[in-house]
């Protein structure tokens, strides 16, 4: 099947074309999900891209979480559908309660646009299923509010459940426990501050984001909400091993 990926667009989003382009290069069929429409249009996966949804007024994601589309995204996620929040999308997902914690201003109080090394800490997520644990990826970051924080009990839970999927090698923003990306208990909702779509071809200087997007697209192709079925195979065999060998299972 195709791999139709919905890309949510709020007023103020700006990375939606980039995310769609990088996914399309990998064979996905991107589809715009407008913030005011309470539907994911039957897509196989949803990306909440970077940008400044609603101008980041109040704080990033604080207004976007109330958009009609987000109730549809929440239902899709509850049903086990793969959801990826990149940068501002990660902020939106935390505000919407689909991921725990919050993103506060960077240590140093400056916007930061640079490429940093990020280590894959868990293969057990829809974003990292095809990347061996310990792999170091060169990924661009581009944020002011990328300093992840959460309650101590939440952090212990994330650590114990192997839900910290990406860590900075050299923490650029003060994130607690060097966290660059996390996933939900069901491992189908992921959020990360780095931009994998910006590391998607040699001319851009890094292709290290491709393997992440390919993992996500694989999940999109393998999943078919409603999610009861998905939940049953929530942890396919390849996700439960840390070897992280790419799946031989092709799209169904």
């Amino acid at each position: 099947m195709s791999g139709r990926v919905g890309v949510v667009v709020f007023p103020g989003s700006n990375c939606e074309r980039d995310a769609a382009k990088a996914l399309a290069t990998l064979g996905a069929e991107p589809e715009v999900l407008w913030h005011a429409d309470a539907t994911v249009k039957g897509c196989d996966a949803v990306v909440v891209p970077g940008g400044f949804a609603h101008g980041d007024y109040l704080r990033p994601g604080a207004i976007a979480r109330f958009s009609p589309v987000m109730s549809a995204v929440a239902a899709f996620a509850d049903a086990g559908g793969p959801v990826l929040g990149i940068c501002n999308g990660f902020q939106v997902l935390t505000e919407a309660g689909l991921l725990p914690g919050a993103l506060q201003k960077n240590r140093g109080l400056k916007f930061l646009c640079t490429t940093v090394p990020v280590r894959v800490e868990s293969v057990r997520s829809v974003l990292t299923s095809q990347v061996p644990r310990g792999t170091i990826l060169a990924l661009p970051i581009n944020h002011f509010e990328g300093n992840y924080t959460c309650a101590p009990s939440t952090l212990r839970e994330l650590q114990a459940d192997d839900r910290i999927i990406l860590r900075y090698v050299d923490n650029p923003n003060g994130s607690i426990d060097d966290i660059a990306g996390i996933c939900s208990p069901g491992r189908n909702v992921v959020g990360l501050m780095p931009h994998p779509e910006r590391a998607s071809e040699p001319l851009l200087g890094s292709v290290d984001g491709v393997v992440l997007l390919a993992s996500f697209l694989d999940a999109a192709r393998g999943s078919s909400p409603p999610g009861d079925q998905l939940r049953e195979r929530e942890m396919p065999a390849r996700l439960s091993t840390e070897a992280g060998t790419p799946s031989s299972r092709q799209a169904s």
Binding site: N14, C15, R17, D18, K21, A22, K110, F111, L112, C113, T114, P140, N142, H195, E197, R198, S200, E201, L203, L204
Partner: peptide, 25 residues
């Protein structure tokens, strides 16, 4: 200065700030 600016949006920045000239696909 330039690390405070988004230099990569639109996936066309082949050479960003810091070089002799920027290159945009």
């Amino acid at each position: 200065v330039y690390r405070q600016y988004d230099s990569q949006l639109f996936l066309n920045t082949i050479e960003g700030p810091g070089g002799d000239a920027a290159v945009l696909r």
